[in-house]
Design a protein around this nucleic acid. Structure first.
Lengths: 123, 123
DNA sequence: GCTATCGTCAACCGTTTGGTTGAATATGGC
DNA sequence: GCCATATTCAACCAAACGGTTGACGATAGC
């Protein structure tokens, strides 16, 4: 399926930039306006706007305009295809399977505890 | 952790190219020599050699020279960090959790059945 | 020792990327 | 209506990307 391949291109490319991953981390905590997203970065607003466009095209976030403010919201589902693609490479390695079992365990036991700083990778 | 961020940059960038993902798919089935990897692609050997260099630097494959032939081997462990990073964005979404539980189920039930064509995305 | 094969290197090319700046386009509040 | 705020657009820039070609360095086989 060619469309799938293109989607993976776009998704992985979007994730291959530390600024964009940091933005995703920030959005884990809450929806944010574009200006607020840009605030902690040592970079022009226009640059952040471009990054947000790339994340939006990848489906990793959605942007909704309310008044003059555009709100950015994380869309974690978009990661699923890429994540599943990646896992297909691990499925014949016992080590990797263990890693995912462990992930699920901690995921389940920590369920309900709010995020504190996201997965790291801040600016 | 800056080193972690850089590793994610390199890993995701390596995955953001259809040729490189196709190479990984091919290596799922067996280890291959550089020339054999290049064979199905409509592209120069030098170009494939560069792609293999990028995959190697990302730790996604390893290359071992035996005689005049250089063998390429998949290293699925390198995907683990990136995969775990991705999952951290899904962990507050029940839908995603379900997806991973389902993945684990099918993974466990299909264990032992050899791969037939990899996860697709061929050239 | 020749010659063919395997793979990389170096130089080049056009395109894309990630950033800048300044102007433009809403919308909101008084 | 007017000014401030929020966001994007357009043009530009240096650097990186993905590809080509041709020369080159090893190794294998005869």
């Amino acid at each position: 399926m060619a469309a799938m391949s293109e989607r993976l291109d776009i998704t992985f490319h979007a994730l291959a930039d530390p600024t964009r991953r940091a933005i995703l981390s920030m959005l884990l905590e809450d929806d944010m306006a574009v200006t607020d997203v840009a605030d902690p970065f040592d970079m022009s607003l226009a640059a952040i706007s471009k990054h947000l466009g790339i994340l939006t095209r990848a489906g990793l976030i959605s942007q909704e305009r309310r008044g003059r403010v555009k709100w950015c919201k994380l869309e974690p589902d978009a990661l699923r295809d890429a994540s599943i693609w990646m896992q297909s490479f691990g499925q014949f390695e016992a080590v990797n399977l263990d890693a995912f079992e462990k992930f699920l365990e901690t995921e389940l036991s920590e369920r309900g505890a709010g995020p504190d700083a996201g997965p790291g990778d801040g600016p």
